[in-house]
Design a protein around this nucleic acid. Structure first.
Lengths: 237, 237
DNA sequence: ACCTGAACACCGTTCAAGT
DNA sequence: ACCTGAACACCGTTCAAGT
């Protein structure tokens, strides 16, 4: 008598549950990988717990079984990426150049993961890759004859340098509107030259130099300034 | 016959509207002042458009008549505070010390407004006070004999330095849990010394230096490194 | 011109309940 | 132990409507 059975083709509910479990079982690994994928593709503003959960076809609450909170997730993402940084085996004769090689590598890693510099801000990388990198960094800095206290601080200083110098950089190859950036810089240039020269003698004169440095040359110059400053602290071997 | 008039004491609705207009008329000035007050008292995480509106006894939508969006509001707050920075009149004989005085002043301003370093991140201060400070900074850097392109970059470099060095600093005098910070640092120290010395020879040896620098000495050391590096670019007058 | 209420499309995190 | 739906207490911004 009941008309319940008439619905037809779909598997009846008492035989198999309608929605299958997520493709892969949830794990911290998988969550970090997914978060990094979202970060690379859409940046930090798009990286929410809800977004990661959606990517994994669950609700946001499910993530909290594997990750304490968003902050810890970002710590893990950061540490994951630090594995990609190349830190040279110390060769004292090439100290200054090797420090620069290390910083260029760090910059490249920061630039190849969108908004990673923002993620790194205020974060002390104490994960597996973080401490490994710190060990190699200290080895390198000491090889140049830096006293321990200077080397210890120098590690922070150069990391912060790369971070800030990378913070507003364009993203990988793709969709960056370089012409918009150029237009903004041109606007600043015009603004500076339009200032009254009697009250702003320096800015009006320096509008060129202030707006002409590209991020590559800024980075190289900044490294050189810091390395020169650091080398004044080197003790003879 | 109708019982409408029985309600008594409160002024009847057709005579004066029940809620008086806000104490002061809304203005950009007032909004910026209020935002800065919230920032000082409760930090950036508490600074929302809704919070500022509430403080002014309106709804968040009302703010948008005076401020384009939150980002512009933060620009204005940042510029407001830059008025407090002291930049010395150049005296070439005291160049290095004067650069340090400027940076100490900037640091002090950043430290006296909670989370201001975070606000300043990725922001180019082009407001009235921002360009005035930039003008004086360029005057000072050039007085040391720095070429224009070096001086132009140096301005950014030292500002970024103060920002990152100030980012995680304790707040004014009040409610900072310095003992919690100390405990965290002690924890890092113990962790570093607990690492296997064969794989982490540098970190285990340097646990002391790595964890012993307080923010005052870090700042002074960082300034000295950068100023030494910059002075290698100075040209004779 | 300025202000408003209500709504839109989001957040991170918690918690009781399910398996 | 792991996962879930629903809820809590928030966000920035827009928009039609009011004055």
């Amino acid at each position: 008598m009941e008309a319940r059975v008439t619905q037809a083709i779909p598997t009846p509910p008492w035989q198999t549950p309608p929605k299958p479990p997520p493709r892969q079982p949830l794990s911290q690994e998988l969550i970090v990988t997914t978060a990094l994928r979202v970060l690379d593709a859409e940046g930090l503003d798009a990286l929410s717990m809800r977004r990661v959960a959606q990517e994994l076809q669950t609700g946001p609450a499910s993530l909290y079984a594997h990750v304490a909170n968003k902050d810890e997730l970002l710590d893990l993402v950061y540490d994951r990426v630090l594995a990609e940084v190349d830190i040279p085996e110390p060769d004292p004769a090439r100290w200054a150049e090797q420090v620069k090689e290390m910083l260029r590598s760090l910059r490249q890693v920061f630039r190849s993961h969108r908004d990673l510099a923002r993620v790194s801000l205020s974060r002390i990388p104490l994960g597996t890759n973080g401490v490994a990198g710190m060990e190699r960094t200290m080895a390198l800095l000491r090889a140049g004859g830096l006293p321990d206290d200077i080397a210890a601080y120098a590690g922070d200083l150069v990391t912060s340098f790369v971070t800030t110098e990378t913070l507003d950089d364009a993203f990988p190859g793709d969709g960056v509107d370089t012409s918009a950036v150029q237009a903004y810089v041109a606007q600043i240039h015009d603004y500076l030259t339009s200032l009254p020269p009697d009250r702003f003698p320096n800015l009006t004169q320096m509008a060129g130099p202030i707006t002409s440095l590209d991020s590559e040359r800024r980075f190289e110059l900044g490294m050189e300034i810091i390395v020169r400053g650091l080398s004044t602290y080197a003790e003879p071997a």
